[in-house]
Design a protein around this nucleic acid. Structure first.
Length: 268
DNA sequence: TTCCAGGTCGTTT
DNA sequence: AAACGACATGGA
């Protein structure tokens, strides 16, 4: 295995945060499927060990986990009060992973009214059905599909009503179109995403945050809504619009990092 | 059995 | 603009 020196990074917190769905832990190692590659990872203190089913560089890993970012500066910018401070302490070292935009879009369309476990199951089924086999480390994996099937085939992967969403969304935007959103202003890119079937404000914000580098994005799911209302609005019922405006204004341009800490801390 | 899950859609106030 | 029920599926 190759080694990378890391600072202010927790592989465990990052991979177990629920931002990615294609990761398994066994025999003391994480197996993380990224596009057409399988990464095997292990962290011991400030050393990150890795191997891969294909040849990759250390900079691939650094870019994937955002290790070049000034973590302390990010934390400082969002650390506004006692509550978020506790949330940061609990999951310190978590990083926002730079996902492939297409995979991210597909995964989060599958997330609507589902559970993290449910999304994993759906994405795994899609990959087994439409992806390619990867034999690595004596185990079989499946790459994330480049193309998906018709609605009937999608339903056979257990997507339920999301099959229609996904089919329409991917027929209205391709990888190129997705990547081009990254050059637009945040609000504009978000509006374009929401135009797609099955993508509302929450899924759009996840795609923007987890795959297109929009760190100001603050996805509001049922958990974030609950914890924000409870801890920042005296337990009152508040519209997502108000919560969202507050969060971006309060936490600043790295509100997305605040969101991911708060999500990990949602039971409090 | 009933309830809930990283929401969104279409319809109705 | 805001509120509301439906929507497939699987796990607890």
């Amino acid at each position: 295995m190759q080694k990378i020196k890391v600072k202010n990074f927790s592989l465990k917190h990052t991979l177990e945060s629920g931002q990615v769905f294609r990761v398994e832990f066994y025999d003391e190692h994480y197996y993380f499927i990224v596009g057409d590659k399988v990464l095997k990872l292990k962290q011991e203190k400030n050393i990150l060990y890795f191997s891969c089913s294909k040849k990759i560089s250390k900079s691939f890993i650094r870019n994937l986990f955002g290790l070049e970012e000034n973590y302390k500066a990010i934390i400082k910018s969002i650390n506004k009060d006692k509550f978020i401070s506790s949330a940061i302490k609990k999951s310190y070292g978590i990083r926002i992973i730079r996902q492939d935009p297409f995979e991210c879009l597909v995964s989060y369309i599958c997330s609507s009214n589902s559970s993290v476990k449910g999304v994993k199951r759906q994405v795994d089924n899609l990959s087994r059905r439409f992806g390619k086999k990867i034999l690595f480390d004596g185990k079989m994996f499946w790459s994330f599909p480049e193309n998906l099937g018709n609605i009937k085939e999608l339903k056979s992967c257990g997507l339920g009503f999301r099959a229609n969403y996904l089919h329409q969304a991917v027929s209205d935007i391709d990888r190129k179109g997705l990547v081009s959103l990254g050059k637009m202003p945040y609000e504009e890119a978000r509006t374009e995403l929401i135009r797609l079937k099955g993508i509302g404000p929450k899924v759009a914000d996840c795609v923007l945050l987890y795959s297109l580098d929009f760190m100001q994005s603050f996805p509001i799911d049922r958990w974030i809504k609950r914890t924000m209302q409870k801890n920042y609005f005296c337990s009152k019922t508040i519209s997502n619009r108000i919560i969202e405006d507050f969060a971006r204004n309060y936490f600043g341009c790295y509100a997305g990092y605040a969101q991911i800490f708060l999500y990990q801390f949602r039971k409090f």
